[in-house]
């Protein structure tokens, strides 16, 4: 019983840290330096579909990306196809620090009408790289 619990923990740990890139590591370290003590994946999951009314339109991350990370999404306004968020499907996801920060900035403003905090970004990034 105890043994299987340990095994369970080990597997859980292994699956969540299974993917990391130098870019995601370095960004998470940066958020930590900005005061993020620990990340909350469950909160990120909830935030992903949290709706905010921006310029009269109900928006969330899922408005453009959907909730199935292995499938492509669609830009809410332009309809342009957005490649799947999972790095298993889109190989170059989360490999470039500049790019991750650029899109956090743009898309938090687009979906929530404001920039995300370091805590929110750390949560999202930890959540997303595990998908």
């Amino acid at each position: 019983m105890k043994k299987s619990f340990v095994l369970f923990c080990f597997t859980a740990l292994f699956t969540t840290v299974a993917y990391a890139s130098p870019a995601s590591d370095s960004l998470l370290a940066k958020y930590k330096a900005e005061g993020v003590a620990k990340t909350d994946v469950a909160k990120a999951k909830k935030d992903w579909t949290a709706e905010v009314v921006v310029e009269g339109e109900k928006m969330s991350c899922a408005s453009c990306h959907g909730t199935d990370f292995s499938k492509s999404g669609k830009h809410h306004k332009t309809g342009k196809v957005i490649e799947a968020m999972s790095h298993k499907v889109t190989a170059d996801r989360y490999t470039e620090e500049k790019k991750i920060e650029k899109w956090f900035k743009r898309n938090c403003k687009d979906a929530w009408g404001r920039e995300c905090t370091a805590q929110e970004k750390a949560d999202f990034l930890t959540f997303l790289i595990a998908q």
Binding site: E55, K77, K98, K102, K105, R106, K109, D110
Partner: peptide, 8 residues
């Protein structure tokens, strides 16, 4: 056009 498209 209502979106942030800033560049370095």
């Amino acid at each position: 056009f209502g979106e942030n498209a800033e560049l370095e």
